[in-house]
Amino acid sequence: MTDLRELYQETILDHYRQPRNTGRLDDANRTAEGYNPLCGDKVTLYLKVEEGVIRDARFEGSGCAIATASASLMTESIKGKREDEALRLLEKIHGMVTGGGQTGDVGKLAVLAGVHEFPQRVKCATLAWHTMKAALENVGEPVTTE
């Protein structure tokens, strides 16, 4: 149960119940779709990138608490970041949830660290992040977590 409390922290539940930055972004210039075939989670990510800086980010989709909260937290944290900074953050988050759960300097995103005790849920936590990478690279195909 202690691990579960780590996983379902108040911040995660809050972002699941009231996800931030949802809906279409009409002036987005980068979008991508992500899909997790295991649980059917879907996310569409809209980014507005100007001069290498992510000015705005929104997402649409349906998913579990981890996937939804992760997408919500991500959109909050990448706004205003340069593309390369956002991608470095992805590496850190990936390392945190697949590795030892060290939180390093990821700020509020540290609430996702509890996922590292639940290997089956790593894909939920990283779906939005991989989708962001695809959007920045403007890959046309939907990304999947497989």
């Binding site: 149960m1 691990d3 579960l4 996983l7 379902y8 649980c39 989670d41 998913g63 579990c64 608490a65 981890i66 939804t68 639940f118 089956q120 849920r121 939920c124």
Partner: peptide
């Protein structure tokens, strides 16, 4: 509650 979260909590 998403079924996936149900599955994880039940597993616990």
């Amino acid at each position: 509650v998403h079924p996936h979260d149900i599955g994880t909590i039940l597993d616990g």
